[in-house]
Nucleic acid binder design. Structure first.
Length: 510
RNA sequence: GGCCCGUUCGUCUAUCGGUUAGGACACCAGAUUUUCAUUCUGGGAAGAGGAGUUCGAUUCUCCUACGGGCUACCA
């Protein structure tokens, strides 16, 4: 809350699977905010759910952030003054603070079994109500609030299951502040006594661990998804119960990322069902199920980050293309939107195409080279760069350049029907045969020479340019698309070009 | 059901009481082009509804509707 405090933010994902783009955006906003204010970015792994823990998820999170260019100052891999940064390694800390809450009367032991709670829920449901574990019912349940200290001690020693619940005050209006939404007020009577400490795995729940760690790690701003807004009053009360209100962080709840078609927030499960990745990186689940990622789909990390940054934030100007440095320089929480943003795969592609345009031929050639080789082309960087220069303006992804240029390396085996109908008629085949002769006479087979030869031939014979060139293209490429014919011929070479003309003349007939 | 958040073109959004409501993606048309693409030009397209407040509401307030989130010994 105080502006004097050093900015320290954290991204605190749960390793229950791969990070999806909503999570990446949250990490990005945290990072931008930290860098903007010369603060620290902390990565904390919230693995307090032993049931849903997924091996490999933590590694994935680190890799994904690194790919995006989101640098971590303190975290599981980097270490730091507040290590460990993995909550499962901080058990004693949470237990100590849970005890502190009980002693201060802000929390209590509850001995209800899952079955008993389930029964209470179904009973309430039968009455048309929703069961809430709160001030109204806690006095009638088996808790340390009503049981004698001896009885409580005995139950614990006997090994009976217990949890620690927060004793939510009754009838208090909690006035909260959110950097994005302004003031929010909630009455505590609408809240319930949340479990703070689970007996099942001897770990705290998110709420306790979160508040304790944010406090201990001196977090100044909590920037997280809107799904946490409902638990903000609980968190406020927790800070108060611990006596930490004075150093409580400022909160900012980010609007959610919605499915493209509407109908809910973008979730991990959407996967590639909807035809676009929801994960930054490819993910192979322990079950063997594979989900694709932006990296593997050929997105430039800069484009991906740029696209994500603008999904819920904008600088108020008409600038749309931002480097990470520009984002850092301009990012403010005040300009984050309030409403959920529907993710648009089409615009994501546009961003990539735009970034591709900014690359040099050499850069694209370097990226294209391995792709060319993977298709069996014995290419060098010089060749790859040349190919890139020829087809780049038609590509959205680097990989597109192979589809756009493969005809250079593989002569057409069939010809596009429509183009054949349109051009392989009349005098065109005969003209093509003549053109073959013209090309045969070109000594140094460069694009410039080829161009000159063809044009002077066309002009001196007063031939219809469109008819000749399109027929020519059909014969060499196999369809009606691609770069200029002179460039194509140079790439293919004299021998190859002449062969293709003969082949077309043979197959399509004269 | 309860609690909370939200609501400007199809989508992402600008607008901090007075604008022909701007931009981008997508879409359509035209120009350029040996094809495709690029590029350029132009076009259609929005303030959920209803009450207020005000000289004046997209902008402030309330109600309704709709959308979303939360409601676990998950985060």
């Amino acid at each position: 809350m105080t502006s004097q405090r050093k900015v320290r933010v954290r991204f605190a994902p749960s390793p229950t699977g791969p990070l999806h783009i909503g999570g990446v955006r949250t990490a990005l906003y945290n990072y931008l905010f930290a860098r903007r204010h010369g603060g620290d970015m902390i990565l904390r792994i919230e693995d307090t759910d032993s049931q849903r823990f997924v091996p490999g998820a933590e590694k994935y999170i680190n890799e994904a952030l690194a790919w995006c260019g989101i640098e971590i100052d303190e975290g599981v891999e980097q270490g730091g003054p507040h290590a460990p940064y993995r909550q499962s390694e901080r058990r004693e800390i949470y237990f100590k603070y849970a005890m502190q809450l009980i002693e201060a009367g802000h929390a209590y032991y509850a001995f209800d079994t899952p079955e008993q709670l389930e029964a209470l829920r179904t009973q309430a449901e039968a009455r048309g109500e929703a069961f809430a574990y709160n001030y109204a019912v806690r006095g009638e349940l088996a808790t340390s609030l009503v049981l004698s200290p001896e009885e409580v001690k005995a139950r614990i020693e006997r090994g009976e299951g217990w949890v620690i619940r927060f004793k939510m005050p009754e009838g208090r209006d909690v006035e909260m502040h959110d950097a994005i939404r302004g003031q929010v007020v909630v009455n505590t009577s609408t809240l319930d006594d949340k479990v703070l400490y689970k007996s099942a795995d001897s770990l705290p729940t998110y709420h306790l661990a979160n508040i304790v760690d944010d406090h201990l790690m001196e977090i100044s701003h909590v920037i997280r998804g809107e799904e946490w807004l409902p638990s903000l009053p609980l968190h406020y009360m927790l800070y108060e119960a611990f006596g930490w209100s004075a150093t409580q962080p400022e909160f900012a709840h980010l609007p959610l990322l919605l499915k493209p078609g509407g109908g809910g927030k973008l979730s991990k499960r959407d996967g590639d069902k909807m035809g676009f990745p929801v994960f930054p990186l490819r993910w192979e689940a322990p079950t063997g199920e594979v989900s694709r990622g932006y990296r593997e789909d050929g997105y430039f990390p800069e484009a991906f980050v740029n696209m994500l940054a603008l999904l819920g934030w904008n600088p108020g100007t008409e600038q749309e293309i931002f480097s990470m440095e520009e984002l850092i320089a301009q990012f403010t929480l005040e300009r984050v939107g309030k409403s959920g943003a529907r993710f648009d795969p089409e615009k994501a592609r546009w961003f990539n195409a735009t970034y591709l345009k900014t690359k040099t031929d050499e850069q694209l050639g370097e990226l294209l080279l391995p792709i060319l080789r993977s298709h069996g082309v014995d290419a060098c960087i010089f060749l790859a760069t040349k190919v890139a220069r020829l087809v780049r303006e038609r590509a959205t992804f680097v990989a597109d350049m192979w589809d756009l240029s493969s005809f250079i390396f593989n002569a057409p085996t069939e010809y596009e029907q429509k183009a054949v109908e349109k051009f392989w008629k009349g005098e065109n085949p005969a003209r093509l045969a003549a053109l073959r002769g013209v090309l045969e006479g070109v000594g140094d087979f460069t694009a410039a020479n080829i161009d000159t030869a063809i044009h002077s031939w066309i002009e001196s014979n007063a031939l219809p340019m469109g008819q000749v060139m399109n027929t020519f293209r059909l014969a060499v490429v196999g369809e009606s698309k691609g770069p200029g014919m002179a460039d194509i011929c140079e790439m293919i070479g004299k021998e190859g070009t002449l062969e293709r003309l003969s082949a077309a003349l043979n197959k399509l007939g004269q």
